Structures are given as C-alpha cells and as structure tokens.
Simulated scan of single mutants.
Amino acid sequence: MNPTSVLFYIFSAVLLFAGFRVITARNTVHAALFLVLAFFNASCIWMLLQAEFLAITLALVYVGAVMVLFLFVVMMLDINTDSLRQGFWNHFPLAALVGAAIAIEMAIVMKAGFNLPVAKAFDPAVLKLGNTRALGVEIYTQYLYPLQVAAVLLLVGMIAAIALTLRHRKDSRYQNPAEQVRVKASDRLRLVKMAATVEQPSAPKDAEGGQA
C-alpha cells in the first residue's frame, strides 16, 4: 500500500466521522464546525485525485465563505434547539424510510458511473495548461446544457428565498425620495397666528419665604 492510499483512507475515515457528527451533534455551532472539518477532508481527497481546482474551490468558497456565514447566522439567531428536537422519535420512522429511499436511488444512479468504458484522452494541448482548463472545456462543451439548467435552478431558488423572506414591517420608518422631490415651500412651513398674552407679575414674598 502506497502513501497515497494510506492518506486516502485516513481522510475518508475523518470525513465519514465528521459527516456523522454533523447530524448527531446537539450543539448547532459544533455541527457547523464538524461540517467545516468534512469540507476540509473532502478537499484533501480531491487534492489526492489531482483535482486541484475543485479542492481549492471547496476550501475557499464553502469553508471560507459559506460556512463562515452559517456560523454568523447560527450565533446571531440563538435558535432554541431543544424545541426543535421535540417529537423527533415520532417522525423518525418516516424520516428513516425517506432517507433509505434516497440512498437507494443515489446508489442506483452512481452504480452506472462505475460501468463506464475507458474515458477518452484529452487533447495534449489542453493538458499542458492544467486540469482547470480541461475542466472548463468539458463543462462548456459537453455539459453546457446541464450547466445552464443548474444555473436556472439556482436563480429560481435565490429569487424564491428573497420572496419568502421579504416582509414589509409596519413599525419601520423610511423616506420616500419621490415625495421629497415633490415637496413645496408651503408644505414645509406653516404660520400660525396666536393671541398675545400678558405675563402676570408674581406676588412679593416675605422674609420667611411665604407670600405677602
């Protein structure tokens, strides 16, 4: 067994452990940190497979941006996890059945990927520029339509998330620039005529502080 295989099994074991702890950790922050560990180990596995672009993308995008955002949201919201865990075992049989169905479907789909014929060789001119260029050529030629479908799905999901979270608060105060432009001087200043009043003189006080 060569060192690459040893590192692969080590990273795979840590990845499986971190993924298991993500769904079993009671603390939400701990679950997010275990997910960061899982992403790091997946990035190391891709590095062993000589997919440097995917490894660096996973480390920078998911670990460096997405997970940091998750941690900020989890810490700022202060979600009560005890209330979310109520009734967990009541819904566990249905959740286990759905999870088993999804796992079987994924196994059937992935099984076909192991029976592929020998992959065609890349153009030597492309390989000289690195696997990032080769990945880009494959995505934007052979897998262009699946890429467009994925982009449309992500766009629809982003618009739906914005629409679901958009709420008009009645207690918020904001300014309308259109009304500010249309304002007139007579609207800003109002003259009020009031009757004159005469101040009454106060009564003199004696030496003891009482009124005379």
Rank of each mutant, 00 (worst) to 15 (best):
M106L: 14
G64S: 00
E199G: 09
Q86H: 09
L58R: 03
A51V: 06
F88G: 02
P117K: 02
A107F: 04
F11V: 05
V149I: 15
G19W: 03
D78A: 12
Q142V: 13
A32V: 05
I108Y: 03
H91T: 13
L16V: 09
I104H: 02
A161E: 07
L135M: 11
T141C: 02
F11C: 14
R173L: 12
G136Q: 12
F39Y: 08
K170L: 14
R26F: 07
L58K: 03
L116V: 01
G64W: 00
A38T: 05
Q180H: 07
N27K: 08
F122Y: 14
T81D: 09
D82E: 10
V98P: 04
G209K: 01
V73T: 09
T197I: 07
Q175T: 09
A134I: 00
L15R: 04
Y145H: 09
R190V: 14
P201W: 03
I108S: 07
R26M: 06
A178Q: 14
I104R: 00
A65D: 11
V198Y: 01
S12K: 02
R133T: 15
N90L: 15
A96S: 13
M194L: 15
N41Y: 06
V181N: 14
D187Y: 04
R167E: 11
A25E: 07
A32E: 02
N41F: 08
H91V: 12
N41T: 15
V152T: 05
L71M: 08
F40L: 11
L84W: 06
L129I: 07
V63K: 00
A161C: 05
T197P: 04
N131E: 13
R26L: 07
L144R: 09
M76Y: 10
L33S: 05
D82M: 06
N2C: 06
